[in-house]
Design a protein around this nucleic acid. Structure first.
Lengths: 130, 130
DNA sequence: CCGATTTTGACAACCATTTTCATTTTGGCG
DNA sequence: CGCCAAAATGAAAATGGTTGTCAAAATCGG
């Protein structure tokens, strides 16, 4: 009962960085897949719920998904130009978040940490910045 | 040329945590202010652009604003129950982000770090979790 | 006070996401 | 295989936050 969901997951795996639901949908249609936008949304949510993909919000408020290599907790270093993403671990940050939280009496602490930058290829490439 | 903008800023200052544009608008109207939703959005954006208020995205994709005490770079520890917010500094995290970024050849590094939890009052309060 | 410029705000337009609901597919069972 | 029930699917409509439009109102300069 998940041919579609697998297809979505598969499409995501082929992508370098984070993709929006609409992106995934468009790409699947390009490859001739017979799937509806609604189903893509549902599959993506299910996948996210199950922890098979990571989700985060764009600055414009769009949800973007990514099939990550490791299912353990990690963060992302995302190139704001090409979207290339590197998964990074940050034990220090985890501890810091925990410390800061309990220091103020907070419990059930969670955190969101994302690092953005311009990757090497994009820095050397032409375009914008002189 | 900014009576409205000041009013918006003022309303924000009276709030404990992050508030959405719609919240601010609703509250201002409650206090009898004659202002339109459009103007609130514009004021909030202007304020955010000028660095007078901090912005972040809810999990639901809503933009929420807050008039912070310090205008220097800092992060937030937000209670997911009552919205109470504590401003926290994290030199270690700043350095970590920089390090991780340059380690992978990224430049112009920026980062988003937000910590969520349940504050002391809310933990002891009744409601949800047993 | 007059015209130019900016600000304002009601309302329409956008657009990603969700909901609705009828149809299709899938699975168990005789 | 034929049948019924539950789950999945997807087209289209509804939602809802945010932005764009544009005319009216406030403000500024002279």
């Amino acid at each position: 009962m998940t041919t579609r969901r697998d297809a979505v997951h598969d499409t995501l795996r082929k992508s370098e960085g984070f993709r929006s639901a609409q992106d995934v949908y468009a790409e699947m249609r390009l490859h001739g897949a017979k799937i509806g936008l609604t189903t893509v949304y549902r599959a993506l949510q299910a996948l996210a719920d199950g922890g098979q993909v990571d989700v985060l919000r764009t600055d414009e408020g769009e949800s973007v998904y990514r099939a990550c290599a490791s299912e353990v907790h990690h963060h992302h270093l995302v190139c704001r130009r090409c979207g290339h993403t590197v998964e990074v671990a940050g034990p220090a940050v985890e501890r810091w978040a925990e410390a800061v939280g309990s220091e103020h009496g907070f419990t059930e602490i969670t955190h969101t940490v994302e690092v953005f930058g311009t990757c090497a290829s994009c820095s050397s490439a032409p375009a914008k910045v002189g």
